[in-house]
Design a protein around this nucleic acid. Structure first.
Lengths: 109, 109
DNA sequence: TTGACATGCAACCTTTTGGTTGCCTATTGT
DNA sequence: ACAATAGGCAACCAAAAGGTTGCATGTCAA
């Protein structure tokens, strides 16, 4: 059940990859070389990152002639939100209260 | 600005660590040995995971005698939601439509 | 048709990660 | 007091991650 979410979490763990996602969110359909701009690493490194993002289904690529256009797929991020984050949002206040109490009880040591 | 979020993303990238968080969400204030149950790795490995979670501020520990009680801190997960996920939620439908169009235009190659 | 451009593939390297084992320290209950 | 219990520290290890360089392939435009 958590199998595919794992790839998404791992893909999101790298700052460069999150940067790539941000760039794609701002402007869809960019090519590899376009995405390389301002990224301070070789094209091959970016290409590897894109492969990881694609494996996690966060990015979908479409070949057009000699270039490849990359699109953001928002679905996996939404799934992370729905199937994972939301659980923690639900118990957020409760957990905060428990934590606060625990930290205060530490005083009477 | 994104400095601390990076540690959180990295901490969440490991399935075992997410499992630990889930356990703490279900029951707060567990000790290290309690958390080790059903985790199929040594106590030291779990201890390392807890250190990483604590460095990301996802877990706060309170020493009580010879044992250490661990509490979930929901704030970083909330920040991930607020400062990162929500941006993608906002452009979700738009991105989906763009992606769909791109995939359909692929037909007339 | 040929040079320039966009990308792909593979080998290689270094650092990080996730885990282990072995031993040490502190606290507790009897 | 002392054995059992809870945890900490450090060295070590294999595998994965993130990056590089070099070369190959496919496509476009003049």
């Amino acid at each position: 059940m958590d199998e595919d979410l794992d790839a998404v979490f791992k893909a999101l763990a790298d700052r460069s990859r999150r940067l790539v996602l941000d760039k794609l969110r701002r402007e869809s359909g960019q090519t590899l070389t376009e995405l390389c701009a301002d990224l301070d690493m070789t094209r091959q490194a970016v290409s590897k990152h894109l492969a990881i993002l694609a494996a996690a289904d966060l990015v979908v690529a479409v070949r057009r002639g000699r270039e490849k256009l990359h699109y953001l797929n928002p679905v996996p991020i939404n799934q992370i939100h729905q199937r994972w984050i939301s659980k923690y949002e639900r118990s957020h206040l409760d957990a905060l209260a428990t934590l606060k109490t625990a930290l205060e009880e530490r005083r009477d040591d």
